[in-house]
């Protein structure tokens, strides 16, 4: 049985302008110890998918339908007590900006220890030791001294590592990382990605890595979900997605990024502008921007089609006899 099974998830924001269908029928599985990447353009529903799993949606947001089963337990409709337990002990999340998640008025040590005591059965002394151990694990030098310092005394990269330490302190089964390195420099980012990979191997947790950066995905992920307009347009192993993309949006994405081999040549951008979730087209949501769009694309949504045992895509091009 998979560790996490998300089935036909629909999450909407009920705003004055209408229902924003941010997540629109998302289905995927995550196995223990695997790293799953979620990519897709800004506004495609990556964060809302993650927040739905944690049930930390902003006020107007609601899971409309679908199911989220963690370790055999249904989370949709579960009461807040269950979710508190899930959030502390089973699934942790790290956000893009560590400053919003750290309290500037408490020392790093106090914040780490509180998280540890809240979620594991440890006393103060044990929590202190555990916190120091976690700081060491994330390569913060002189951890005993660092415990007594405040967040502003840390650099951006160090704060992000503290956030990782805090997320890992309660030994979650799943770590959700929502753009954890976007604000960091490449050399610092490289260190943090390496670190996440190491820890993931050591303690065998699963990671959901949300990112814009296909380089980060290539480096870290076993499997990849590509999102467009609140839905999954393609899903597969990293190698399948990079070397054998089968949805026109994914293909466009790959053509539009500078790589080591297309230097000096023209990039091929995806034309048009991102979709308006309040006015979703009836057919394939990518059809208005797709060079290959056929008549059927405009009128009917493509079903998820099996490309091979490691790869699915929802694109009419795959139905075309060639």
């Amino acid at each position: 049985m998979a560790l996490l099974e998300v089935k036909d998830l629909h999450t909407s924001f009920f705003t004055d302008a209408g229902e924003v269908k941010a997540v629109n029928g998302v289905t995927f599985q995550l196995d223990r110890g695997k790293v799953l990447g979620i990519v897709g353009e800004s506004g495609s529903g990556k964060s809302v998918t993650a927040y739905s799993i944690m049930q930390i949606l902003a006020g107007a947001g609601k899971i409309v339908s679908g199911s989220i089963v963690l370790d055999g337990m249904e989370l949709v409709g579960a009461d807040e007590k269950v979710m508190k337990h899930v959030r502390g002990n089973k699934v942790s999340i790290i956000f893009q900006d560590p400053m919003t998640s750290l309290n500037p008025t408490y020392t790093i040590g106090k914040q780490l220890m509180e998280a540890i005591m809240l979620h594991t059965k440890r006393n103060r002394k044990e929590a202190w030791d555990r916190a120091v151990e976690m700081l060491k694990l994330v390569n913060v030098n002189e951890p005993e001294k660092r415990m007594k310092q405040y967040p502003h005394e840390f650099s951006g990269g160090m704060r992000q590592r503290v956030m990782i330490a805090m997320a890992l302190a309660c030994e979650p089964d799943i770590l959700i990382a929502d753009e954890p390195t976007t604000a960091l420099d490449v050399t610092i980012q490289a260190g943090i990605l390496e670190l996440m990979k190491d820890i993931q191997k050591q303690i065998g947790m699963a990671i959901i890595m949300i990112t814009h950066d296909l380089g980060v995905v290539a480096q870290l992920c076993d499997e990849v979900i590509v999102m467009y307009a609140g839905g999954i347009c393609e899903q597969g192993t990293a190698d399948e997605i990079f070397y054998n993309p089968r949805h026109e949006y994914t293909k466009g994405l790959m053509r539009s990024i500078p790589t080591t081999s297309n230097a000096g040549r023209k990039l091929e951008p995806i034309s048009g502008t991102p979709i308006d979730l309040l006015n979703m087209p009836e057919g394939c949501p990518f059809a208005p921007r797709c060079d290959q769009a056929m008549n059927i694309c405009i009128h009917r949504k493509a079903e998820k089609k099996v490309i091979n045992s490691e790869h699915y895509a929802a694109c009419w091009m795959n139905e075309k006899p060639n």
Partner: peptide, 19 residues
């Protein structure tokens, strides 16, 4: 060496210089 290259095979082979 820290640049994340959008190519899984290259990324796996990449030897990073850690600072």
């Amino acid at each position: 060496s820290a640049v994340p290259v959008p190519d899984p095979k290259v990324a796996r082979a990449n030897q990073r210089v850690q600072l």
